[in-house]
Write a protein that binds this DNA or RNA. Sequence first.
DNA 1: CGCGAAAGGTGTACGCCGTACACCCATGAC
DNA 2: GTCATGGGTGTACGGCGTACACCTTTCGCG
Lengths: 241, 241
Amino acid sequence: MTPASAPAARTPLNRARVVAEALATADEAGLESLSMRSLADRLGVVPMALYKHVSNKEELLDAMVDAVIREIQPRDVADDWKEAAREQVMAARRTMLQHPWAWRAIETREAPSPAALDRMEAMIGTLRSGGLSAPLVHHVMHTLGSRLWGFSQEVFATGPQPTDPQAAQEAMEMMAARWPSVLESAMSTLHQQDTAVGPGCDDETEFTFALDLILDAAERLHTQGWTPGPRSDGATRVGAP
Amino acid sequence: MTPASAPAARTPLNRARVVAEALATADEAGLESLSMRSLADRLGVVPMALYKHVSNKEELLDAMVDAVIREIQPRDVADDWKEAAREQVMAARRTMLQHPWAWRAIETREAPSPAALDRMEAMIGTLRSGGLSAPLVHHVMHTLGSRLWGFSQEVFATGPQPTDPQAAQEAMEMMAARWPSVLESAMSTLHQQDTAVGPGCDDETEFTFALDLILDAAERLHTQGWTPGPRSDGATRVGAP
DNA sequence: CGCGAAAGGTGTACGCCGTACACCCATGAC
DNA sequence: GTCATGGGTGTACGGCGTACACCTTTCGCG
């Protein structure tokens, strides 16, 4: 059989195609439905073929995370360091919103990939060029934590509310009886008239609130000439306002 | 054979023992080595026996998380709301340090358990009784995020350094070449003389820095009479200092 | 006292998963 | 023309969670 008559002489696999298809699978069906077997199926190939291009699933996840982090593209903004830092984090958030599975994958990586280090280099550079001292920058990076990567790590996402209105009513009454403050707090942002669409609080608002709070605090410490205190007192307290 | 001569008439399984042994396994060997089969082995029982006490592994994890959260026992402290809130978070941190696997389990829960709601109720109550408005408290809780539960969610933990001094030297030089600011930032806290034991930065210091920064910022916003802004401007900016 | 139901432990089996290992085939260098 | 090498294949193993049918022990109740 000549190659021409062969069934559409398929383009050979390569690492880039494997990673790209893995990304597409995760985007479409979630990370939990990405298995070496399903990915091989999708590529029209036998599972073991993948191992000629990635050494194991962990390495595939490394590559996926690397690719996602590389997608983060901050816009050029004013030379104000705080605005620049904010934009970098918001750019990360834009990317993460497009890959809802990404934060789970990122969290399980053991070491930062080169792309991650590039991102950190840019962020740290921005803060340093704003005049913040190296130790302060170090602390601020830790304080940002996962927010640096655009996800706020809400520990208990408020799951889907019961659709049955009566069940919802009963759940509400139970909350009111046992956890009144939690309920009040949850409702407090719902009562604003110009709220975001849908129930629950506005993720965007919460994210930017926290981000701005941290950046503003950093700026304040910087202008006040903060220096790291000795550790013998047990903690480096920020100090009363 | 009479029961007395039977091989040590074993105490029957119950849910509490299953959960307790699961906790012990995770504490000793890590969460990844907790399987229904290994847990059954440890209890001297066949795997399916566990399913008479927990309906599946997810529910077992729910119970484990619930138990850990119940261990959080804040000390009584001064009536200053900030100090009280700080102690609650530090108590959570104390507990989490004793169960290094717990944060991974907590993160994968879908809804807050009753114990978690109790914890949140206490924290929110503390903040509210300090006079903070309900919307401010809501935002502060989101800003705390996973820190409320005592873990700071460092995304890329700096893995173990190479033990070979020459390899370490080379890694250092590579960092210096490609990621000088990252390196400088990492080193900035190492150079303090009275540093914590071991290499890397002091987790405790970073944690308390971030916590105090957030609580101080909350206090400042409160005393300044912060109120939620309209959302039409895209974000509820905290406002310049 | 006897019996029947329930509670709790067992054995087998299924369908997933990641991946080790041996194999084979096409390509291209010499 | 030979032969190494890169890349796809087939089979198989050991692990996982858990469905389902089964058996035993216990205990309430007539």
